[in-house]
Simulated assay, not measured.
Amino acid sequence: MIAAIDIGGTKIAGGLVAPDGTLHHRTERPTRRRATDPGEVFATVTEVVADLAADPRWARVDRVGVGSAGPVDIARGTVSPVNIGAWRAFPVVAEVRALPQVAGAPVALGGDAVAMTAAEHWRGAARGFANALCLVVSTGVGAGLVLDGRVYPGPTGNAGHLGHITVDLEGEPCPCGSRGCLERVASGTAIAAWALDQGWRAPAGAPSGATAAAVADSARAGDPIALAAFDRAARALAAGIAATATLVELDVAVLGGGVLRAGELLLAPLRRHLRSYATLPFTRHLAVRAAELGTDAGLIGAAALALD
């Protein structure tokens, strides 16, 4: 049995995962994201591990997998999540290994997008493909790579970070320090911001407010600005996916994350634009699929990293 931990800016989740990828006994706690003391944030991880350890199956746990919002550094075992201000180069691997329930068992670390990639390749939409790009399109855009049948995290665990490749040479500055990044065009935040800038307004009483979900609702109703916002995001994603396929030769691109709740509003124009960008013979066969594992991907992926 593998103990899996999924660390995000909103919640920290845990689960027990069997060697076949079946998730058992899921638990979660809100992240103390406004805490200034690193130990206060880690206290939530401690609570999650204690919940898991109370399950009788914990006796069979022989390793731990941790997936975390990034940046991460798997060589050093540290994380610096953008949305958890108290953690900068926080030694999460050492801290988890030191917990009494873990008792020095092996601990594997990966970024959340790499964990999602490992999960979808093991149990989801990328299963059976030797070369895959898996994207998380949400508040930001993250991604991971599978090359020659294995998840490829790179030396620090950040390989495949598609959200910060430039897709617009004259684009707006990005908090990462570059400009015109894919994330500034195709994330849920960017979709809503662009639509608002073009004159779209969320319908009165919309439960989600001025968000990508509200833009999607308007697009389904035929609003031209909302439809254009998703088309623009899809075009940027297609350009990034095609560039990656040209560089490393891919078989499939798998997309997950909150923005993918829009379904074909994003996927249909993405496939159309991909035909314009993935034009070389070795890229034309590239398939596009929706992720299959949903909110369980982080935990299943963390377990996959631990098994690997």
Results as ranks from 00 to 15, higher is better:
61 V>K: 01
42 F>N: 01
300 I>W: 04
54 A>N: 07
10 T>W: 09
68 S>D: 08
3 A>T: 01
220 R>H: 13
127 R>N: 07
188 G>N: 07
72 V>S: 08
88 R>G: 10
135 L>A: 08
106 P>D: 03
213 A>V: 15
210 A>R: 10
51 D>A: 12
282 F>Y: 15
300 I>N: 03
226 A>E: 05
183 E>Q: 14
207 P>A: 12
92 V>M: 09
151 V>S: 01
180 G>N: 05
128 G>M: 02
54 A>G: 10
152 Y>R: 13
260 L>D: 00
195 A>W: 03
234 A>Q: 10
29 R>H: 11
136 V>I: 15
47 E>G: 02
66 V>E: 04
126 A>Y: 08
3 A>V: 04
250 L>Q: 03
197 D>M: 07
126 A>W: 08
82 V>Y: 09
174 C>T: 06
48 V>D: 06
307 L>A: 15
202 A>L: 10
260 L>G: 00
193 A>L: 12
308 D>N: 13
202 A>E: 13
161 H>G: 10
228 A>N: 06
96 V>H: 07
167 V>K: 07
152 Y>E: 13
257 G>D: 03
195 A>N: 06
283 T>R: 03
255 L>W: 10
69 A>C: 06
132 A>I: 02
14 G>L: 05
150 R>Q: 15
129 F>L: 08
294 G>N: 04
143 A>E: 09
247 L>H: 01
51 D>H: 12
213 A>S: 14
187 S>H: 06
133 L>W: 05
37 D>T: 12
116 M>S: 15
22 T>Q: 15
24 H>K: 08
79 V>E: 05
65 G>L: 02
215 V>E: 08
185 V>H: 09
292 E>L: 12
256 G>M: 10
119 A>E: 02
233 A>F: 08
23 L>I: 01
55 D>Q: 12
280 L>G: 13
185 V>W: 02
207 P>H: 04
99 L>N: 01
197 D>K: 12
116 M>E: 12
298 G>F: 05
229 A>N: 07
214 A>E: 10
281 P>A: 11
13 A>M: 01
178 S>L: 12
237 L>Q: 05
304 A>Q: 13
184 R>D: 11
104 G>I: 03
40 E>P: 00
264 E>R: 11
92 V>K: 12
212 A>L: 11
162 L>M: 09
74 I>A: 07
17 V>N: 00
243 A>F: 08
188 G>S: 04
53 A>G: 01
190 A>I: 06
69 A>E: 05
37 D>E: 14
230 F>D: 07
136 V>N: 07
308 D>L: 13
297 A>C: 03
25 H>V: 14
29 R>S: 04
